[in-house]
Simulated scan of single mutants.
Amino acid sequence: MRHLSEKELDQAIEAAQKADETRLVRRLCFIKNLYQGDTREQAGRRVVDREIPTRRWESAWNDGGVEGLRPRFGGGRPPKLTPQQ
């Protein structure tokens, strides 16, 4: 799914680079490779040398565009101690 034009995608990549969002840049570059006609596997190999979750990235893009690709962290395991302890 094309949420952005190629020019807008380039701008999103540039903005993510300026914001030092390395993971988002990698994911957006993956999408750009898909725009240029690569298969999911080819696009993934161009971005990194190891196995990456290309199906999940493509699905996140289709569902939510750029915001869908942003890494989300659950905050980790809850602390065992209370704030008073």
Rank of each mutant, 00 (worst) to 15 (best):
F30I: 09
R40M: 10
E8F: 07
D20K: 15
F30H: 07
E6F: 04
V25D: 04
A19R: 13
D10K: 15
A16S: 12
V25A: 04
R50Q: 11
A16G: 04
D10M: 12
L34V: 13
R56P: 00
P53S: 00
E6Y: 03
N33E: 15
F30T: 06
V47F: 02
R23A: 12
T22N: 09
L9F: 09
A16T: 05
G44A: 15
R40S: 11
A16E: 02
R23C: 04
A15W: 02
G44T: 06
Q11F: 14
G37H: 02
E6N: 10
R27T: 07
A43D: 07
E14V: 11
D49A: 11
C29N: 15
R56V: 01
R40N: 06
R55S: 07
K7W: 04
D38Q: 09
E6V: 08
R26A: 12
F30K: 13
V25N: 02
V48Q: 14
A19Q: 14
L28Y: 06
C29G: 09
Y35Q: 03
L34R: 15
E51T: 11
K7S: 09
T39E: 03
Q17I: 08
V47I: 14
T39Y: 01
D20V: 06
E14A: 15
R46V: 01
I52G: 13
Y35I: 05
E21N: 09
Q17Y: 05
N33S: 08
C29Q: 14
A19V: 08
Q42I: 03
R26G: 03
R26T: 10
A16N: 01
I31F: 08
A15S: 11
V47K: 10
A19I: 07
A12D: 00
A16D: 02
K18M: 13
R55C: 05
I52D: 13
V48E: 15
K7C: 01
R55G: 01
R27K: 13
V47H: 11
I31P: 07
Q11S: 05
N33P: 10
R27I: 07
V48G: 05
N33T: 12
D49F: 08
T39M: 03
Q17F: 04
